[in-house]
């Protein structure tokens, strides 16, 4: 059971600290299974905080998404810490940001929340439709319970959990200052990359047919880029007009180039929180691209990002004996 009283107390204490700017958590959304990130600036606002199987947003995104506007003359920039709640996967994003020095350790207060998996709203809406009222959900004895207008409904994990959670190996935060709740037992030891292997088993033509269909539906809203906690370049190649690496026009050529560069820029960095795939309005299976690179990184360099804050970034390091059987 999630002790919300305790969560709200932690939040109130944290936000009352002088060195904390704001506290980011989750709150109930406005309808059905929706949940929204919640920014707590005053202790009173902490009463809206929740932590449930519906909290899929990776809040680490907001560490780098926060806009750095010019400070008016005579004012000092606000250098206070940001407190944020992280699930296991989200915490890996924090670690990876530390590795890349996208943030500094003293800029954040990490509230680690051991997680038993979050609901994929697309899956659950297929089962139940879109309920009008806000649905609450909770974990109980390895099951997911949704409170619906006509009573509670129990689901086994496989029915409703997001794909990434079924294979989750890091349900417990790998970095935290305050731990909220008790650590849980991981339910998956080994990543088997099953989805990737399925595609690898296809012929080249079949693979292209598959991806061509997916890439063609891309509308280039860039939500996958924006939601990603690790896509935080101030000057993104996609926004650049001079030189224009990737034309703005939407067609299979530019969409493929966009998708390749998005995925590639996360090679050895993606911590597999699955946010890109969740937010995609046209349902492109982006995690199948990211996972492929994770698999390659694991096999070739025996590396997993977002675990060790002292590690060196994969593509900014090398070993003289890196595999090179492909070289002529």
């Amino acid at each position: 059971m999630v002790d919300l009283e305790n969560l709200r107390t932690i939040a109130k204490e944290t936000i009352s600290r002088e060195d904390v700017k704001y506290f980011i958590g989750w709150r109930e959304g406005t309808y059905g299974f929706s949940v929204s990130p919640h920014f707590v600036r005053e202790p009173a606002e902490a009463d809206k905080l929740i932590f449930s199987p519906l909290c899929s947003n990776n809040l680490a995104t907001y560490l780098t998404l926060a806009e750095k506007l010019p400070v008016p003359r005579g004012q000092e920039p606000d250098t206070r810490k940001v407190a944020l709640m992280v699930k296991g996967c989200d915490s890996r994003a924090v670690v990876q940001l530390l590795v890349e020095r996208g943030i500094e350790r003293e800029q954040v207060v990490v509230i680690g929340c051991p997680c038993q998996g979050v609901i994929d709203t697309k899956k659950v809406e297929q089962l139940l439709g879109q309920p009008e009222n806000v649905v609450r959900a909770r974990w109980e004895k390895g099951k997911i319970i949704c409170q619906l207008p006509d009573g509670e409904k129990e689901f086994i994990k496989e029915e409703v959990l997001a794909q990434k959670c079924l294979k989750c190996r890091y349900p417990n935060p790998v970095i935290y200052d305050i731990l909220f709740g008790e650590k849980v037992e991981p339910w998956c030891q080994e990543e088997d990359f099953q989805e990737v292997k399925e595609i690898e088993g296809l012929t080249l033509q079949e693979r292209w047919d598959y991806w061509q269909e997916k890439f063609s539906s891309c509308i280039r809203c860039y939500s996958c880029r924006n939601v990603c906690p690790l896509c935080y370049c101030e000057d993104c190649i996609l926004d650049r007009l001079n030189p224009t690496w990737i034309n703005r026009s939407v067609n299979i050529s530019e969409n493929t180039a966009f998708q390749l560069s998005r995925a590639f820029h996360l090679a050895g960095r993606c911590i597999e929180c699955g946010e890109c795939e969740r937010v995609c309005p046209v349902n492109i299976p982006l995690m199948k691209l990211n996972k492929k690179l994770s698999k390659a990184v694991k096999e070739m360099f025996d590396f997993e990002p977002g675990l060790d804050p002292e590690a060196k970034p994969l593509q900014a390091s090398y070993r003289p004996d890196d595999k090179e059987d492909f070289i002529l």
Partner: peptide, 21 residues
């Protein structure tokens, strides 16, 4: 060239994965 090798091995895998010969 060591950095290039890492980068190249990954883009090659990725391109092959989406069906580029």
């Amino acid at each position: 060239n060591y950095y290039a090798r890492r980068r190249f091995s990954l883009i090659r895998e990725l391109l092959e994965y989406i069906g580029i010969d």
